[in-house]
Each structure stands twice: as structure tokens, then as C-alpha cells.
Design a protein around this nucleic acid. Structure first.
Lengths: 202, 202
DNA sequence: CCGCTCGTTGCACACCGTGCAAGATTGCCC
DNA sequence: GGGCAATCTTGCACGGTGTGCAACGAGCGG
């Protein structure tokens, strides 16, 4: 958050302007009808400058805040070490979702753009799953397991990501009626109880 | 499997030749150093013909068999209706993995290509997760739940996909030492028992 | 004030993916 | 067998993405 000079501030500004323009134009015209040239033009920079900030057109939507935005795994590592592993994970997840829900309107717009562009939705899910391995590492650190030998941490990472994805999709489908954190809590409760609790036996 | 004529046979042949060439060249040079022109040349067809069979370069790797290859959800639907939901799911999963393991050498090559190309790995995972919603629908049909109202089916679909992904990654990392079906069984056992069984409490 | 650093810009280029139209091959019916 | 229709293949042109390179200019430090 420390401003180290006019230079870095302007750089962050143009990046934000590009990300905002990308999201706005995508909401207006649909993602595939938005060219990089249009995004750059709306942000008052050149075409070439766009790729000085983002390595691909999609990155402007997927990582508007840069690579140093807080991730789930870092939140988990910040939890007190004496806390029960699953409790610490729940808390970290709540913090992460609360941060994501800070600007519900923007989150809604993003979700609308993603869900209305078939080629783009998987990329969002991929982004959520990017920390999967990192999350597995953080879990293994906390439990003292070996992330390569023990199946547990990798499974927890993948499964938690999956649960968050489902919660996010459901939240958007409901129009935000239920708070995102509540939906995620329900999903995690189900997973803690085991798969049979998700489907009725006959 | 019915040959309806010389025409469709030749079409399937060229598609297979293109898919094979794509995988072979990717294993030799690395995926990003393989152009569509090179793939087409190796299969003795023109550049333009490639896109008559695949809508993108990646599709030649991801869906070599065409869009009508059997999916997990169809295998689940083929299970007897009186079988316990989770049992039916396990059986369908075993069939699916057995089919994928039919040619272990090719599977190994594919995984090597995917894991050595950062931009490609998520696409494989995405492909696995493509049936997620369809799988959720099949689960809901079997259990009589509502896929939009009940969280269960969507959660099961996402979580099972995640477990399969983790199993596949682990299988490849181990060099195929443990059969893929065994790894998946272990992961699913853990999920059935609930998340706490994945991580030790202190 | 002067040099250094770094963001910006333009230009050229390789590659992906698509629409269109012409040519070649197969299937089918007379 | 001959010819017609369907369809696969091919070439061509074009828009768009993403990159390397070199020049320019604005902030930063001495």
C-alpha cells in the first residue's frame, strides 16, 4: 500500500484503467466483441502498452489487481498455528470470501461476463484452482504431512476449491440472495460430514 | 463402430492422423514449438484441413476421439437404477478410469506433455471438469434431487472431478507405480468418510 | 543539470482461427 | 457406366492475439 513514487502510482493507475475498461466493455458488448485495441483506447494508452501490463487479453479480467493480491493459501498460513487445521481453513476461507464480497456489484458484473462467455468460464474456475497446489502445501505444513506422499493435503486443496467454485456459481445464479459465505459454509459442512450426506440413499 | 462408408472412414483416419501427429510433435519439441502447419504437414493434409476437424489447436490434444467419446455422466446413467447412488457412481468411475488406462503409454505421454506445458495443464483439468454439470444432473436424476435447489449433486460432481484430477496427477507423478483405479478408490474413500479423515487433528 | 532507469509507443512479424469459393472425391440413382 | 449431389479438401484473404526490437520521453538520483 506504500506509494514509492509517482512512477509506480501512474503504472498502477494505467493497469487499473485497463482492467476497468476491459470489464466495462465486456459487460457492454460481450467479451469476444472487445478487442485489445478497444480496451487500450478506452484507457487512453496504446495497443502495445496493454501487453506491458497483461500477458494476455484475459488476464485483464482474471487478475486485475496484479500477481500480489492476497491468496487463500497466504491467509491460511497467517492463521495461528495452534488452531485445529480444519478450523483454521474455515476461517481463512471466510476471510477470502469476505474480501471477494467487498464489492458485490463488481463481483456480480464479473460473474455475468464470465457466465455469458462459454470460453471464459473455465478460465475463472482455473484461476480459483490456481492456488490448489499452494493451498495443499499450506495444509501439509500445518498438519505435518508430506504433500507428495500423503493424499490428504492435495485432496483437501482440490476439494475446497471445488466447493468454493460451486458456491460462487450458486451465489450468482441466485442473484446474490444468500450471502456467499453462508453458501460456502453449507458446502463445507457437507464435505466435513462426508459424501453420503450430500445424496440421499434410498 | 459401424463403418458407414469409405468417406467417414477416411475422415476418421485423417482426424486420428492429425491427433497422433499433434501428440507426437508435442512430445518431441514441446507444445508451444508446434505449429498447426507442422501438424498438418506431418499428417499430409493442408493447414486449412486441420480446422475442418478441430476448432482449435488444443482440441487435437484434448479431444482426439471426437465429441462422441463416452463420458462419465453417460456411464453413470447406464448403471442399474436400483443401485445405491454412491455405489453406482463408484462403478461408473472405475469403468471410466479403466477405459482411460487402456493405453497407459499414450496416457503417460499425454500427461507428460500437459505437465511440461504450464499453459496446457489447466486445459486438461478443465476437460475433466467439463462433465461436472452433466455429472451433477445425472446424480440428481438418480437421487431425485433438484440440481438447482439442492447443493448435493453439484457438490458431488465438482468434488468427484477434483478427486479424479488429483488421482491422475498423482498417478503420473509416481510414474504409474500404483494403478490409477486404486488411487481414485483411496481418494473417494477419504471423501466418503469426510474431510477430517484427510488431515490429522493435533 | 545530467545520466540512469523504466514506462510508453510504433513497427514488423509469426501464429491462430474463420469466411468464402473453387476443385477433387465419394455416394447414389438413373 | 454416367452423371448429379453431397462433402471433404485446399488456397486465399483477412482480423485478431501476442512478441521482439528500437526509439522516445518522463521520473529519479547524484
Amino acid at each position: 500500500m506504500i506509494e514509492r513514487g509517482l512512477r509506480e502510482r501512474k503504472k498502477a493507475d494505467t493497469r487499473a484503467a485497463l482492467a476497468d475498461a476491459a470489464l466495462r466493455l465486456a459487460a457492454e458488448r460481450g467479451w469476444e466483441h472487445v478487442t485489445v485495441e478497444a480496451i487500450a483506447g478506452a484507457a487512453d494508452v496504446s495497443y502495445r502498452t496493454f501487453f506491458n501490463h497483461f500477458s494476455s487479453k484475459e488476464e485483464a479480467l482474471l487478475e486485475p489487481g496484479g500477481p500480489d493480491q492476497p491468496r487463500l493459501s497466504t491467509r491460511l498460513r497467517a492463521q495461528p498455528a495452534d488452531r485445529e487445521p480444519l478450523t483454521a481453513l474455515r476461517t481463512a476461507i471466510r476471510e477470502d470470501l469476505a474480501a471477494a464480497s467487498a464489492d458485490p456489484e463488481q463481483l456480480r458484473t464479473r460473474m455475468t461476463v464470465f457466465t455469458s462467455t462459454p470460453a471464459l468460464l473455465p478460465r475463472l474456475l482455473e484461476t480459483i484452482a490456481t492456488d490448489e497446489r499452494d493451498l495443499a502445501l499450506a495444509v501439509a505444513e500445518r498438519t505435518g504431512q508430506d504433500v507428495d506422499a500423503d493424499l490428504g493435503p492435495a485432496l483437501v486443496g482440490a476439494v475446497v476449491s471445488a466447493a468454493l467454485r460451486v458456491s460462487l456459481m450458486r451465489w450468482h445464479a441466485q442473484g446474490g440472495a444468500t450471502p456467499l459465505t453462508d453458501l460456502a459454509d453449507e458446502a463445507l459442512d457437507t464435505l466435513v460430514a462426508g459424501l453420503p450426506s450430500a445424496v440421499p440413499s434410498h
